[in-house]
């Protein structure tokens, strides 16, 4: 008989709880924030679009760190976490792409246009889809970990390109309202608050999902080795 395991550890449970609570608070703030001067209520999609894109970038950055750490210390756990980061990153970057398209249709008149931010983001998405395909193609766990770590590191070069694309190529997509490189804020206080709460909620949810996915992989691996 196999011992029934607890569904997760305490830290993960707390993170999930905190993330979901903040998400609800963020939702309230997002609806309570004043409408945009030009776009009106339409701009509220920003409170979903920006945090998803942020978590996408954050996840790929975390995949970079875990991949580099794997190549240094060669611990299977690090490889699992890198894979988990990429999976979560793809989900959130996909969400950012979809919400971006929904936002683009009423403001720019089209769902998709070949401008730098959209193109670099789509490329970023393709790079990490390749990462997952590569993982599924290799059976030997050692080789899989090494190869995917290399792809995880190389692929991360595209993250700063995608982030900076709106500045380098003065594109159709607007520039950052909360600029990480200069620290300038270009929006109303209530909107900043709503955005920050949502960013925090999404980031905490990312950590929670990462830990959950890591646990799941670990137990899956244990079951396989026991069988």
């Amino acid at each position: 008989m196999q011992k029934i395991q607890k569904p997760g550890d305490l830290v993960t449970t707390l993170l999930v709880g905190l993330g979901l609570t903040l998400l609800a608070v963020g939702f309230y703030f997002a609806l309570a924030a004043p409408p945009d001067a030009n776009q009106g209520y339409l701009a509220r999609i920003m409170y979903l679009h920006v945090p998803s894109a942020w978590v996408g970038y954050l996840a790929f950055f975390s995949a970079l760190l875990y991949s580099a750490a794997y190549l240094i210390w060669r611990r299977p756990g690090l490889d699992r976490m890198a894979a988990a980061s990429v999976e979560i990153g793809l989900v959130f970057l996909g969400l950012a792409l979809v919400t971006g398209m929904l936002w683009a249709r009423p403001t720019w008149g089209v769902y998709w246009t070949w401008e730098p931010r959209l193109t670099t983001t789509a490329i970023l998405f393709a790079v990490y889809v390749g990462y997952l395909v590569l993982r599924s193609a290799i059976e030997d766990p050692d080789l899989r970990a090494k190869a995917s770590a290399a792809v995880g590191i190389l692929g991360a070069i595209n993250v700063p390109i995608s982030y900076m694309s709106v500045k380098w190529w003065r594109s159709l997509h607007q520039t950052q309202s909360l600029d990480l490189t200069t620290g300038k804020v270009h929006m109303d206080g209530a909107m900043v608050l709503a955005l920050l709460v949502n960013l925090a909620a999404f980031s905490i949810l990312f950590l929670a999902l990462l830990r959950l996915r890591g646990l799941l992989e670990k137990r899956g691996g244990k079951l396989v080795s026991e069988a």
């Binding site: 490329i123 790079v127 390749g130 395909v133 590569l134 792809v151 070069i157 595209n158 390109i161």
Partner: peptide, 13 residues
């Protein structure tokens, strides 16, 4: 099959 899949996104820039 894998090679172009991994290669093309990275060489796009």
């Amino acid at each position: 099959v894998l090679l172009p899949l991994l290669l093309f996104p990275l060489v796009v820039p």
